[in-house]
């Protein structure tokens, strides 16, 4: 039997959140954390969380497992269980709607702020815009982001300034478009980022790198943005 301690909060019935202990029979198997959550939900249908693809590509089930953010569907219980106990909490730093479901509004707002879409003011050719494999390779490690928010919600700078600091996920996408040879809005993009909060609240703590379930490195991308700002201004 696995001991699971889960964060519970239903705004209609609970004055404040509490931790609930439940026992789960995993059948001796090393299940994924999401499987354990499904088992809990089969017993107690009021337990709320998000899930979709269950294979680590949709980014729905970012949760805090025994203190570390990650995707429940691709994290084996053995990786996060401590003394036969698994502690499940919502992603930190965002308002909780219910149980493990957080309000991602601020996270998405920061993503939108970087205008995460290709901007090109030249007329499109009849076929695709050409791009060399080397130039395309610059997007590797950037475009794979699944917007699960594990990084941004593990970043202290984002905890304090989620309304002003774009956060690692948004900045990774900002750089994804800065690095794209097909994008012509580099100057405008950089101008919008050159303030004391948007980029420069990153203090290089690297929690984002530590938790990214896709193995991406937002800190490095932020470094690249800073260098672009620097070479543009000096």
């Amino acid at each position: 039997m696995l001991q699971v301690s889960i964060y519970r909060y239903n705004p209609e019935t609970d004055a404040e959140p509490y931790m609930q202990d439940v026992q789960v029979d995993t059948g001796g198997k090393d299940l994924m954390v999401l499987d354990v959550m499904e088992l809990i939900k089969a017993q107690d249908t009021t337990f709320a969380y998000r899930r979709s693809c269950r294979e680590g590509v949709c980014g729905s089930d970012g949760v805090n497992m025994s203190g570390k953010n990650g995707l429940a569907c691709i994290t084996p219980v053995s990786q996060v269980v401590r003394n036969n106990k698994l502690v499940l909490r919502p992603l930190p730093g965002l308002p909780v709607i219910r149980d493990l479901v957080v309000d991602m509004g601020m996270f998405y707002a920061q993503y939108e702020k970087v205008q995460p879409y290709l901007q090109n003011n030249t007329p499109a050719p009849a076929i695709e815009r050409l791009q060399s494999p080397e130039d395309r390779a610059k997007l590797d490690g950037l475009y794979e982001c699944i917007l699960c928010a594990c990084c941004s919600t593990s970043c202290p700078s984002f905890w304090w300034n989620p309304d002003r600091f774009i956060g690692p996920a948004g900045l990774l996408q900002a750089y994804r478009f800065l690095a794209d040879t097909r994008d012509t809005a580099t100057e405008e993009r950089l101008s919008r980022l050159d303030d004391p909060f948007s980029v420069f609240r990153c203090h290089g703590i690297q929690n984002c790198v530590n938790v990214c379930p896709k193995g991406l490195n937002p800190t490095r991308a932020i470094g690249h943005i800073r260098n672009m700002l620097l070479s543009r201004a000096t």
Binding site: S191, R192, L193, D195, P196, F197, S198, V199, L229
Partner: peptide, 18 residues
Amino acid sequence: MVTSVTSMGRSGLYDWLM
């Protein structure tokens, strides 16, 4: 763009460099 009149140079890059 988030502006602030109390930051040192009113630019993130300037402050960072300074």
